[in-house]
């Protein structure tokens, strides 16, 4: 049994190196009037040619896109508001995301010159901030689905505990039978 345990430990070490979960995730950001982003597998890789369905919060279909070679997509929603994105990678993986484009970004067409300068400034500040925080958001999304070593070991503890409990219950029942 100890050789088996050693083999199991070796397997565990082998896999501990690329310790990533396997899950499809969706990253998207609203910049100006556009929603752009990409799908990615936490273990690595981007889904190419995956179906992206954009719906309103009430379920009405807005548009249907395909991701590009790098898993990316970009579209301009018809009106500012909340949108629900769902991505199907084609191999049984799905990811969902809710995103809202800020209504203040759509500058009114017939605005006085003074207001349009502020609107333009606002838009540029929005774009700069979005650009700056993008790496943070990406890192957060990538970290969110990671399998951490602690969680794995915790799961093993659960398995040991559950089966120990089962064995204990069995042993009690057997003693009743005597």
């Amino acid at each position: 049994m100890s050789r088996l345990a050693a083999a199991l430990a070796a397997l565990l070490l082998l896999f501990a190196l690329p310790a990533e979960a396997h899950r499809l995730k969706l990253f998207a950001q609203a910049t100006g009037e556009n929603i752009a982003g990409y799908g990615f597998f936490i273990g690595g890789g981007r889904p190419q040619g995956a179906d992206l369905l954009v719906t309103m919060p009430d379920g009405t279909e807005v548009s249907r896109l395909k991701t590009g070679a790098d898993g990316g997509f970009s579209f301009a929603p018809p009106a500012p508001g909340r949108y629900h994105l769902s991505l199907a990678a084609g191999d049984g993986h799905f990811a969902e995301l809710d995103i809202s484009t800020d209504g203040t970004l759509a500058a009114p067409a017939a605005a006085p010159p003074q207001a349009s300068v502020t609107a333009d400034l606002d838009a540029r500040i929005e774009a700069a901030v979005a650009r700056q925080i993008r790496p943070l958001l990406e890192a957060y999304e990538a970290a969110d689905g990671r399998v951490r070593f602690n969680d794995l070991i915790g799961g093993l503890g659960w398995i040991v505990g559950l089966f120990g409990l089962w064995a204990w219950l069995r042993s009690r029942r057997d003693r009743h039978g005597d």
Partner: peptide, 8 residues
């Protein structure tokens, strides 16, 4: 363990 860990 095996089905939690993915490799690219």
């Amino acid at each position: 363990i095996a089905s939690s860990l993915a490799f690219p």
